[in-house]
Amino acid sequence: MTLEITNLTGGYSGIPVIKNVNLTVEKGQALGLIGLNGAGKSTTIKHLLGLLRPQKGTITLDGVDLAKQPAQFKKKVAYIPETPVIYPELTLKEHIELTMLAYDLGEDSWDKANELLTMFRLQEKLDWLPVHFSKGMQQKVMIVCAFLTKAELLVIDEPFTGLDPLAVANFIDLIKQACAEGREVLMTTHVLADAQQAIKTYAILNQGTIEFVGSLPEIRAHYGLKETDSFDKLYQVLYQEESRDQHA
């Protein structure tokens, strides 16, 4: 089971935001997609979810081509958006039921659902409308629904915003568990301190192209960061590169 993005070029209104993106996420791997604001992370994810049509390139998951077999592809993917997207008419319980219906999960999935709900302290709120929850609580609903599916690929966009430290710790455990089960994770984030706990490989997206893929020590070496430098310093380096390119 492998996610393969090959020569992906795409954007909005015919203007490419990402250019010739090539990425592979192996079975059991968690890959971090990082870059400055506007680098093309969300655009890449939108293509991966079938929300944008690529101008060029292919996306396949375990041999299933998104362009040719979108329905089968979607069954293999679960998504956690940066801003929680809640159905205003559905209760928390119904969000779980809808996930079960959409992903063809059996009634026995309630065991897993209850486990996740307890983990994120939502078990008492099953009959509530999550649209009235705080942002952090809504994000937990998104996490519960995504991890409830048996999707092979988890696409996670900036997940840490609004989550309390306990929820972050639980979330990281879930990612590790998913990888141990052989699922793939693609996550964008700026909160590298938290991400490092679950993600060992990162793809650096800069101005729409994948500039480098590697582990933390490899990234340090590639961008000339010292051992003592915080990983956040990478952003300063990327910003300097971007400014240099714009002036040139």
Binding site: K74, K75, Y87, A102, Y103
Partner: peptide, 11 residues
């Protein structure tokens, strides 16, 4: 206009 509706494998 609900992104999750389009992302979920709903027929």
């Amino acid at each position: 206009r609900n992104i999750m509706y389009r992302v979920y494998p709903i027929d």
